[in-house]
Amino acid sequence: MNVLPHDPMVPVPFRIEKVRRDLSDTFTMEMVPEAGGDFAFRPGQFNMLYVFGVGEVPISISGDPADRSVLVHTTRAVGTVTEALDALKPGDVLGVRGPFGTAWPVEAAFGHDLVFVAGGVGLAPLRPAIYQAMAHRERFGRVIVLYGARTPEDILYKKELERWRGRFDLDVLVTVDRATGKWGGNVGVVTNLVARGGFDPLNTASFVCGPEVMMRYAAAALEKKGVARDNIWVSVERNMKCGCGLCGHCQWGPHFTCKDGPVFRFDGIADLFQIREL
């Protein structure tokens, strides 16, 4: 990152340019460094966002990695800091530390079918990887986005999904847990979409992001389909506080989730998923 200060614990002020409400409790902010300059990141990485006097929270970056002029974060207001973020308006300033963590290995998946499996707001950390994959579309076989949401009203980036679905070179399948209104699409868990296939399991890379339970079952569905563990990646959430392996909070077995993750290759962590309260 071009604006990372010498001390990784001191944030850099960013000014909010735009705020868009995605869902009743979820919003997307675009921001730029107050002092000018670019922000470079890799898809899957996260920032620590600081709200003046309130605190800090880890939020994955959800913009296009090719566009360094603006930093995009999609956040769900579920706690003190995220609710304070929700109260910010264009023109307001927040502190940013990052980017931290590992990335979705988009380039390593060249030559494969690429299957994104997202659940809920888990689509946000995957979006930069989808952008990157589409920027190199010719390097992949099929590219499939499988997305599960709670209800049709909870579908994130709905317009963008529709746009993507209109493309001939990207398959988008959306399912909801509960159908409401005039929903005429799929109903059922996202793992059902995995089971339906449409990709070559022996030549597929899959990036999975959502609640941990969903990721466990999605990975199992992919494995059952024949995708090898070392071709599956997941993004793990733990209590990231410093973001850079100094505070110890996000430890998960031998890993510092903030720097060894959040994106892990599934074969390396599958066993940890099975240990309770780790």
Binding site: D25, V78, G119, G120, V121, G148, A149, R150, D154, D177, G188, V189, T191, N192, A195, G210, P211, V213, M214, Y217
Partner: peptide, 18 residues
Amino acid sequence: HRLAAARLQMLDLYGPTK
């Protein structure tokens, strides 16, 4: 498979965590 899927669906995984 249907039973497992139905159980997962019941969990309301993406539901409000608040």
